[in-house]
Design a protein around this nucleic acid. Sequence first.
DNA 1: AATGAATGAGAGTTCATTCAT
DNA 2: AATGAATGAACTCTCATTCAT
Lengths: 195, 195, 195, 195
Amino acid sequence: MPRQERRQALVEVAFRQIAERGFEGLRTRDVANEAGVNIATLHYYFPTKEALIRGVVEHAMQRFRSTLEPHGSSADQVVNHMRAVRRLLGKEPELGAVMAELSLRAARDPAIAALLEETNLAWHRMVSGLLRRALRDGHLREDLDVEAGAALIVATLSSMTLPVLNRTDRMDDALGELRRWLGAPLPAEPNQSLD
Amino acid sequence: MPRQERRQALVEVAFRQIAERGFEGLRTRDVANEAGVNIATLHYYFPTKEALIRGVVEHAMQRFRSTLEPHGSSADQVVNHMRAVRRLLGKEPELGAVMAELSLRAARDPAIAALLEETNLAWHRMVSGLLRRALRDGHLREDLDVEAGAALIVATLSSMTLPVLNRTDRMDDALGELRRWLGAPLPAEPNQSLD
Amino acid sequence: MPRQERRQALVEVAFRQIAERGFEGLRTRDVANEAGVNIATLHYYFPTKEALIRGVVEHAMQRFRSTLEPHGSSADQVVNHMRAVRRLLGKEPELGAVMAELSLRAARDPAIAALLEETNLAWHRMVSGLLRRALRDGHLREDLDVEAGAALIVATLSSMTLPVLNRTDRMDDALGELRRWLGAPLPAEPNQSLD
Amino acid sequence: MPRQERRQALVEVAFRQIAERGFEGLRTRDVANEAGVNIATLHYYFPTKEALIRGVVEHAMQRFRSTLEPHGSSADQVVNHMRAVRRLLGKEPELGAVMAELSLRAARDPAIAALLEETNLAWHRMVSGLLRRALRDGHLREDLDVEAGAALIVATLSSMTLPVLNRTDRMDDALGELRRWLGAPLPAEPNQSLD
DNA sequence: AATGAATGAGAGTTCATTCAT
DNA sequence: AATGAATGAACTCTCATTCAT
């Protein structure tokens, strides 16, 4: 199998394992088995377990960033974004689980911390950009503090990565309230779960 | 040393270890050493590692619940509560780290899930109770959805347990915005970080 | 089994393994098996393989040094010493093999180099001391260079640790010639192999 | 690259690796890398690691034998030979290291033992030949035992292959004493280190 | 109540070797 | 003639757990 394909396959298996069992339960042998290769083959592609984990981190970051692109009119983009992230985390809870695992690991691993902060900063900037534009176009409450609002949105959305602590059903209420607080209109394509 | 005291000492060491290194890095031997006893002694008090972890869970839950008691007038209680939790997580980041670790582990461990859900439910009820009373007393925006507001507050506060993903500095802005959105007054004892 | 006894037992097994198979063939599992304990038990006494090897080095040094004590009158001590070392290496070829292995390893391991040099220096000093006394007492050729003679004796004896390269049968001739060169008398207890 | 050249290149790399790290540290992959070829290519030329080692043994034997040719008058040949070997081992310690490694391995590998014994025998014969001729020509002490003398010379010289155990500085003294013992004159080209 | 000694199971990693291309 | 990919077997080391004392 071509080099990049096999690497990718191994990373995806490891990603899923972390989502299911946490870093605590990540075993290189299991990853190799599930990918259908010998453990020595895994080490042929990733010299150490840490190298494999770095691969997973990059994979997760890229997967998350790819959902950050805004859609719709400036009036709808903010709500569309909240909706998109909520959908993503609802449909692919693995991604949320891995992001939360990485967040915890970041406290002990500066390399992960750096990557995570970078991603997080990009996210925050994107959201505050959306808020600023919508505010300028008169779609939001006039007295809104853009930075604080972005922080609130990012915090609320990222809290969804913690299972149990924040159940999805309640989160829909919270996001609806958040929308109302923004003074934002319901987007064209209605979505009950946001209101 | 009396039985309960020794148990408590072991649990506290384990609690700290989890905060520092995650479940991933929890070693019974390290716990025993740091508590100044033999590994076999640890197993005398906690037959298995899981038993020790259950002890930690109970310890964490109790430690968290003890900060939930409301203070001040009905007008201030909501903001005081947000402030109290933010302070707690700022001053004792260990507790937040352990809560997040437990939250992730809950996805694989029904026993932890149950305990966590119970605590979370209690928290949510407490916050919605505060909101309801403050609303009745005319301290909040009249059109506030109590349940949704409570969910939003709990989500925002609990997102602070994820290091890096949500930096404390930004969170202060977010909490200030949250307060303004509630239409709540600043409590008597002023606190810049909440506005 | 008491701590020191078990440590000693493990070291002795490792010593024998090195003699038989070289460092190349030293396996912690084999050492543990032959000592009748689990591999984890070996690591209970010696945290790493290197620690075990250090134990072997000390054991070998001590075992060698214990044969360095001189015996007999000043006239006989030199020849008695050569005879004693030759006998030791003939009877316990393991010790010679391990010494040679250590000598090679010393080129890569400063810790071993230091220990070996120390032992070697002690040996050289002892031999030159014997030569000096015998010379003073008129038992040797008058024009003997004590230091050079000691170096020659030590070199010849230590060459016996290299199997094949120097077969024992030829070495007896060489040692006999060495004795004659020294002008030393045959010791009371006659020994054909030295003359 | 021509077949024989590539084989030779691989053998030389392996030779150097053994000198530097011992058999203990010989890795076919490292040899291949340092020779600039793929590991599979190495196995194309040497089907097994053992085959490569046999190549190294032959290489070492040949390299050593090529220094055995006597030079100078019959009076000087013995001392010239000692000098030549001492120089060789001083200038190319690799060769000594590999010879010692092989000597130890010979105890476990009959094939190596045979080759080494053959070389050793040739060496011994050559030295005793030199001694016999010099004795006949009246250049040496008349009562010299030729065989024993040869054994002593070979032993002393070969002890130089053991690093640390016999430091080169002391060996010069020993060789000088050896020369005096033989009653041999200093060769025309004076060399302080031998006297 | 407490411990030193011991272990089974399994972790990550290494390495000589093979094979299709 | 040469290689990238793959592997089985084995290696050192770790860890929760047990047990006699």
